[in-house]
Design a protein around this nucleic acid. Structure first.
Lengths: 241, 241
DNA sequence: TCACATTTGTCCGTATGTATC
DNA sequence: AGATACATACGGACAAATGTG
């Protein structure tokens, strides 16, 4: 027979490692532990919480994958508070996209909407410094092309940088996950310097439009750019699966 | 200094439990294991992978918190494949909010971009049947209000339905994850039938604009609607901790 | 109601790998 | 190079939960 009070207790008996994880998490959220601080070693934590090391380890796994800590091995190592939550969210989006097997067509449609908004935001508050950062990115990409190498990394980073300049963290999170999906597709294709070069040209043109304060042109170029990327990858869609 | 993009991350010495986790994850992503399938028990997995049970457990923790599996104790229990990624994303968003890495304003700005496009897509291909589904949703919400109950669930579903009608998985994932966050916030507010009623009115008005083939009006109403929801959640921003 | 089997949850002891000094 | 400190990993054991007969 269950006590009536049981109805109001937590549905699931929370496991010890979850409680340990929550305790540490609370300390971080309350600001008592900040990024850069070191947590005690596993054995020390086990003693402090009066639990087994295995339990502590599982708690640390939760904190680690939730983006609150990293773990370093060796002397002077141990759990280190480090905030990578936003990256973790991007990772989860990537998993979700992969689970649903999103197509390039779907991705492009979403990017059309998203990159447009990002561009608008970035366009409005872009500083001289940020403009230089983007131009730097394009220059590095051009250097790659000049050396007959693809500039995939730089080209993807271009969009990540733009997202950052929007000043909206949610844009960054979603943009990064979308770029990861794109990177996934690209990594399965044979490197093609010529195609990569065209992407760089597109980026340079968009940048030029921004620098020239021609907003509509920048938007139009971005739209065309995304469409072109999709059509280029289109024939491969079947082979991927 | 950290690279902005970890797409091409350094080849970190991966730990055994991470490899085990990845193996299982790959099986799920490749469709060889589907939602509802049961994984072997921890001891069985340990034997199959030729690793210790503790290692398997840590791998399962990763999969669990990444939203790929749940774990049940007792006879007939064990790891069960279940997709809860969206819940995990919203959990992490909430953490990010508490860490002040993301603001409600940022989330709303992202929603504005997505919901606008979702609406456009849905508007273009909406069938009679789908329109009825949405009207059904509004009717149910109105019934709740008429009974002096909040219609939070129905109101959130309105946006999910709209996202599904866009026919784009990316929109569905992003919209539903954001909606989950809002739902979490709303669940902490005192139920307010009057406010809930206004949301339903907004939805009905949007739907009417769609049915009347007035695209611009629908877009405008949606935009206003989202802004209103934001201001309603604004005071919450400080209290969360 | 009761016993029983299965599976996760937790702890301990020990050994190995790894990074720092 | 050697010593130290730490995470990583294995194996064994028992407790607790959960379903079955």
């Amino acid at each position: 027979m269950k006590e009536p009070s049981d109805l109001f207790e937590t549905i699931r008996d929370r496991r010890v490692f979850e409680k340990v994880s929550d305790r540490i998490k609370t300390l971080i959220l309350d600001g008592e532990l900040k990024a850069g601080d070191k947590l005690p070693s596993e054995t020390a934590l086990a003693q402090q919480f009066n639990v087994g090391r295995q339990t502590v380890r599982e708690a640390l796994r939760l904190l680690e994958i939730s983006g609150f800590i990293t773990v370093q091995r060796g002397t002077g190592g141990g759990p280190l508070i480090m905030d990578t939550i936003l990256n973790r969210i991007s990772d989860l989006y990537l998993d979700a996209f992969r689970m649903k097997k999103v197509t390039m067509t779907e991705l492009t449609a979403a990017r059309q909407a998203f990159e447009r908004t990002i561009l608008l935001h970035a366009y409005d508050h872009m500083s001289e410094n940020e403009l230089n950062t983007l131009q730097d990115n394009v220059q590095k990409a051009k250097a790659q092309i000049a050396g007959n190498r693809v500039a995939t990394e730089e080209n993807i980073q271009f969009h990540s940088l733009l997202a950052r300049m929007s000043g909206n963290h949610v844009f960054v999170i979603v943009a990064e996950s979308m770029m990861a999906v794109l990177g996934d597709f690209l990594s399965r294709l044979a490197p093609d310097v010529r195609t990569s070069a065209r992407v760089v040209e597109d980026h340079e043109a968009i940048l030029k439009a921004i620098a020239g304060r021609d907003r509509e042109k920048a938007l139009l170029l971005m739209q065309r750019h995304l469409l072109e990327v999709e059509t280029r990858l289109q024939p491969f869609r079947e082979e991927i699966a």
